[in-house]
Write a protein that binds this DNA or RNA. Structure first.
Length: 112
DNA sequence: CGAATGACCAAGC
DNA sequence: GGCTTGGCCATTC
């Protein structure tokens, strides 16, 4: 559907960001995915940084807290955002080890 | 259009 | 286990 009267160029573009958000929205509660996984799933295995940039501008309907780095850690520096993400994940039942990292084999979203 | 940006990643010490 | 370095890439200015 959609013949969308897009202003011009890039109907296929749709912006990489948008696809990132669409994917993150599918991550179930209590599960996490990494930036690299998202990049690979979108066909851009080397665009993990871009995924991170996308999260920086992520809209409200996206469970951004479920996106962590390849080591199972929270990428945000120990700021308010860091504590909020950690609190939200704990609230979803996810446990952190002493180094503040998540066990990806256990909590990683299997579907991706 | 060139340069800067950034919530990454893998490899090396 | 932790810190540093170089490479990556879509988006913004």
């Amino acid at each position: 559907m959609r013949h969308s009267t897009r202003p011009s160029h890039s109907a296929a573009s749709q912006t990489f960001f948008r696809r990132v958000y669409a994917l993150v929205r599918q991550v179930p509660r209590g599960r996490v995915v990494t930036y690299g996984q998202i990049a690979r799933a979108l066909g851009a295995p080397r665009a993990a940084r871009t995924v991170g940039w996308a999260m920086c501008a992520c809209p409200e309907n996206v469970p951004w807290q479920r996106v962590v780095n390849a080591r199972g850690g929270i990428s945000l520096r120990p700021t308010a955002g860091y504590h909020e993400q950690r609190a939200r994940l704990k609230e979803e039942g996810i446990r952190f080890d002493r180094a503040g990292r998540i066990d990806l084999p256990e909590y990683g979203w299997k579907k991706i």
